[in-house]
Amino acid sequence: MSLPARVATLVVAFLAVVAGVLWVVFDIIGAQPQTENYMPYAQGGQVNVTMMTAAQTTVTNKPDWVTYFIQNPSTKQFDHTTYFAVPANTTVNVTILGYDGCTPLRNPLWGKVAGTTGNVENVQYYNGKTLSASQALTTFNSWANCAVQHTFAIPGLGLNVPIASPTTVAENNNLCGTSPCVAPADAGSPHTVVKFSFKTPGTPGSYRWQCFVPCGLGYVDGNGGPMSTPGYMAGEMEVQA
């Protein structure tokens, strides 16, 4: 080949490599679930965050994976993400709509509420017809009863909140079949409403949160799949100054 031909080949190859690297960096390695930004919605040292659990993720190509959704504070839509941002030194009032059925905990220790204001959570059960009165609960026995569907735990803050589940076989067999569970058809789906509060730390940074129920069905020890994938059962709470 002549010199110009060699140089031209070289330039083309170089541009192709750069394009490939940029594509991998931005499209694959840099890809993250979106972050729900609750920063502007904090008032008087308080912020309200609403989440949802569902037994399936029909919005992705993993329809059988269990998942969390987080409500977008401005559009009020439930987005498929587990990342949210809240201010430091603020009380976060969390509401979790639990639409999944029960699964036993691997370690029953995680059936105890810890790290919330007053070390309790307030639970309302909806059995498909009526919403029960709010009960303040501290401990759940997932082995003896159908009591827990997931947990919301931030180990870095000592926070652990078991999400109560619909309690009977009939209710568990009648769970909402789409996700997020907001379609009119899901209006009668059994679920629970779990409310609790906790204080964010003064140190800004990323605090990971996870679920301690081995809910990745079909994976060894139940901790693969959704349990190991951000956006499903693993997420980060971004505490900002």
Binding site: G101, C102, P104, W143, A144, P214, G218, V220, D221, G222
Partner: peptide, 21 residues
């Protein structure tokens, strides 16, 4: 191989093992 309660057994949950094996 947990000794699970009645409710869980009725739901077909056989242990906190993820159901792989």
């Amino acid at each position: 191989t947990l000794n699970l309660g009645k409710v869980n057994a009725a739901l077909g949950l056989t242990g906190a093992g993820g159901g792989y094996y």
